[in-house]
Design a protein around this nucleic acid. Structure first.
Lengths: 231, 231
DNA sequence: TCTGCCATGCGATCAATGATACCGACACAC
DNA sequence: GTGTGTCGGTATCATTGATCGCATGGCAGA
């Protein structure tokens, strides 16, 4: 899993550079090979395909994305972190439009897992919110909602980059989705209190586990909580 | 504006067919030309470019989209129409995934106006909502929000078509955005009543105009309403 | 009616690009 | 020392976007 093939890494970086500077968001395998001083067959040996190269570039983009997230998150208030996460996502899209589209726009073949892993990061951030009772939905459900909205907004901004100048549209969407997902501090008592309590406990279990319980007991408890929070 | 060049139309339709049936969402100019029995230079004479052809396909896709919208809308309740419009958008994405991406995914060059025109349709539908006092935001602002969310959700569904089976995720997003944009019948009295009244009047003017006022007077009134509804 | 023009389409061809077949060189185990 | 396998290169193929110059045919005007 170390994945420290310097040649492979160099080609991925060259491809990413050319993708960023290309006017049509395309790359040529020849140009990538020339940039690192090797010939075409090595590319096909390393990546199998042009699609394989693009998948690798997308996955590498995820690494940068995850590093950016890791550098900023965890202020102590998971809800504040969530807001910052939305804005960080938009900033990443603005800084790397071509790479962003490669990562988040559906490609029919694409074996890249960038989107799924970004989703996992978001689920983790949401689970931390649920652990303090701030979440009205299941983390995965909420993550799907938030990620789709975030991507939709980012793609709109990429199509019309002038939008990036004004944070209002992005924040409107953010507030709209978050208010549907988060338990307002004001209307803390909305919905079924049993359900919210169960969601909260479930998230706590997912995060830390319970030393006081045996693994079997924990598993059974989780299944009960699932049934409570299901509908 | 009649645009009734049968050859041009045939090529656009052939291109759309091949786009829909291609596994990688790509088309070859040669194949399109062969399908209609002409040779390549005619394509370049008619569309100038492969990009030009794709733009034409996207615009043709808008025609189909608009026809679908025109066939369903106007039940009398503009808010109900808005909900149906969201679902219709998702259905269009499911039925024509490749065409959908061509229309709504940002392409660096692309002179297609499909997205802008879809936005205009949405603005019109929202203006009808505002005319009955159901809108909390300016129609254009609301339209931008709704369209981004709709596209984001549709792209997510296209990437994982199994999602289309369950309407819940789509409807969650729909409700989240709509509740942020529409004036709930329950909390009709939320926000500034003056502002909502002004928004409502503004929409009514946009729809029908006021016969009782001179054009200059109407124009001045609209500027006043703009200032009232601005912040 | 004849003539020149131009719109329209075509065969041939170019250039770029994705992809592969085959060869040579080097390291290493036996 | 020799076989083996990894690694890289040269040459080449096939596809595809794009263009050049020519042929054809209808039509306005003498």
């Amino acid at each position: 899993m170390a994945e420290t093939d310097p040649l492979r890494a160099a080609m991925i970086e060259a491809a990413e550079r050319q993708l960023a500077s290309s006017s049509d968001h395309e790359i040529a395998t020849r140009a990538v090979c020339e940039a690192v001083g090797v010939s075409q067959p090595v590319l096909y040996r390393l990546f199998g395909d042009k699609r394989g190269l693009l998948d690798a570039v997308a996955d590498h983009g995820y690494e940068r994305y995850a590093a950016l997230k890791a550098a900023q998150e965890r202020t102590g208030d998971p809800v504040a972190d969530l807001h910052a996460g939305w804005d960080g996502h938009m900033a990443f899209a603005q800084a790397n439009p071509a790479l962003y589209q490669l990562m988040f726009t559906p490609r029919p073949w694409s074996h890249s897992t960038a989107r799924e892993r970004v989703m996992d990061l978001l689920v983790a951030a949401l689970t931390r919110c649920a652990a303090v009772g701030a979440l009205k939905l299941e983390p995965r459900t909420a993550a799907q909602l938030i990620l789709s909205a975030n991507i939709g907004t980012a793609l709109d901004h990429i199509a019309r980059p002038a939008l990036f100048d004004d944070p209002a549209p992005s924040h409107r969407m953010r507030d709209a989705v978050f208010s549907h997902v988060l338990a307002h501090t004001s209307d803390r008592q909305d919905g079924d209190p049993l359900r919210t309590a169960a969601l909260r406990l479930r998230a706590q279990l997912q995060l830390g586990g319970a030393e006081a319980l045996e693994p079997v007991e924990t598993a059974l408890l989780q299944r009960w909580l699932e049934r409570i929070t299901q509908p």
